[in-house]
Design a protein around this nucleic acid. Structure first.
Length: 340
DNA sequence: CTGTTGAGTTGGGTCTTGGT
DNA sequence: ACCAAGACCCAACTCAACAG
């Protein structure tokens, strides 16, 4: 059983264990699958191990380290990706530990590989004026224009994730006051988000024009593609891109950076915050489980305040206010006084 | 017992290929 | 022109563990 133990365990792990016992999301399994695809490809190219000849015995700390290094040096990936690959391998090794007892020490050593620190950049967002400019682009005299306008307005207004918008059916949209949309996020968690009445009217007008009315349509996708199916996130990104491009053409000073569907969500969060909306409400609208996630926006806003202060700052301390250590003082005193 | 972090999971971004 | 699918990269998010 050692000849194909790796193949056996890996397929059990991906096809039985993760979906069945763990109940892992499809995204997770696909993401882990990608990691092992790349690992096996690396082994073939650099370690002289074909996928058929891979064995558990060969899955050593050193091999994994070389693989991780190659993702950075050869593939040009950043630390976040390296960590993600490592996390997938770790998950597999924890699985193996309980089943392949003989090599428990070998797996322990793989698990000892540390992850790298990653730097966090604040979420990218755009101004209200820029949002307005984007929403001015779709040609409302055409059906696709009305769809695009309703789609973009709804996405911004609700602050939804792109997949949540793609998954919407007509039944999730409620036009009569108070207008709402029912968004289904992670783990089938549902939240109801109120809509501004102009947005609701926009969506309503679009839906009527598209023949999306009546009880029979309730389960039909609110934003179908040409084939009448749910649009994918690629499709939605395409639509956003298109209108951002024309908006940029009309006013090159605006929208200088690329803007993704998620940036719309970030922007909504920032605009709510800047309007003085309580973080707890913002969390409910965005559908965060943890208020800490929402607080990221508060911190960006704090950063903006800091920059405002910085620009008006007059330096009152002499340039060498933080002295270097010289031989006349003892090191501990110097350390203690540093920064005071 | 509660606020904070770290580790792990999960969705989104981007690019390419390709079909209508 | 419109948009899907898939591969790969990365960031967003969750939640258990742990410090306070």
């Amino acid at each position: 059983m050692s000849a194909h133990d790796f193949q056996h365990y890996l397929s059990e792990f991906l096809a039985r264990f993760l979906p069945g016992e763990v109940g892992a999301a499809r995204n997770t399994i696909m993401s882990y699958r990608d990691t092992f695809t790349l690992l096996l490809r690396y082994c073939k190219a650099h370690e002289d191990i074909t996928p058929e000849h891979m064995r558990c015995e060969l899955l050593t700390k050193e091999l994994v380290e070389r693989f991780l290094a190659s993702t950075e040096t050869e593939r040009g990936c950043g630390p976040a990706t390296r960590n993600q690959r490592l996390a997938a391998i770790r998950s597999f090794c924890r699985y193996l530990q309980a089943r392949d007892i003989e090599r428990i020490g070998q797996y322990q050593r793989v698990l000892s590989i540390p992850k790298k620190k990653t730097s966090t950049t604040p979420p990218h967002h755009v101004s209200v004026d820029e949002i307005r400019l984007i929403l001015a682009q779709p040609d409302a005299s055409r059906p696709t224009g009305r769809r695009d306008l309703a789609l973009l307005a709804l996405m911004y207004d609700s602050g939804a994730r792109v997949q949540e918008i793609a998954d919407l059916t007509l039944g999730d949209f409620r036009a009569d006051p108070p207008a709402t949309v029912k968004l289904t996020g992670k783990g089938n968690k549902v939240r109801i988000v109120p809509l501004m009445s102009p947005t609701a009217a926009l969506v309503q007008r679009y839906a009527e024009g598209a023949g999306l009315t009546g009880a029979a349509s309730r389960s039909r996708p609110l934003f179908p593609n040409r084939a009448g199916n749910k649009m994918t996130r690629t499709g939605i990104a395409y639509i956003l891109d298109k209108h951002v491009a024309t908006a940029r053409k009309s006013d090159p000073a605006m929208l200088t950076e690329t803007i993704s569907p998620h940036a719309l969500r970030h922007s909504k969060a920032m605009h709510l915050l800047q309007a003085g909306v309580n973080l707890v409400y913002i969390r409910d609208i965005l559908g965060h489980a943890d208020l800490k996630t929402t607080e990221i926006y508060a911190r960006i806003d704090g950063e903006m305040k800091r920059q405002a202060l910085q620009s008006a700052f007059t330096n009152l301390t002499p340039p060498d206010a933080m002295p270097l250590w010289h031989q006349d003082k003892d090191m501990l005193t110097w350390l203690t006084n540093l920064g005071h």
